[in-house]
Amino acid sequence: MAYKLLIVDDEKEIRDSLAIRYKLKGFETLKAENGKEALRILSEEKINIVLSDIIMPVMDGVKLIREIRNEYPMVKVIMMTGYVTLENALACYRYGAHDVIFKPLADLKELDNSILEIKDFLLRWQNKLSTLVNMKPKSE
């Protein structure tokens, strides 16, 4: 089953290009314009990874990740930001962002690696859970 990746950015070009990139890499991608829309999608779909900009209108990325931490503790988040402040970075860190990627996204290798790490992480946990279930002996 493909992992679901939610891309949150107020710039349409970035949203679309990232969505195409990761669709080609085998993810199912969804897009949102701001934090609020992202939360709406999160409440309706099972999302595995959120890729979010920090500065956005309506609801910014810090508020979004905080909300995700509270409501969807198992969703992994990668933050992207062009305007880096220590405060923002620390906030992402505190709310358990998997990574912070600094824009501009000239080289996407860093982002790719980060996403791959999460993929491994999720896979590992999935296997753990299956092992746990299978450890209980079954008849036949």
Binding site: S43, E44, E45, K46, E71, Y72, P73, M74, V75
Partner: peptide, 13 residues
Amino acid sequence: KGNSAYFGLMKVK
């Protein structure tokens, strides 16, 4: 609440 979202049970959540 926390776990049901992981399993995709959004309405339970």
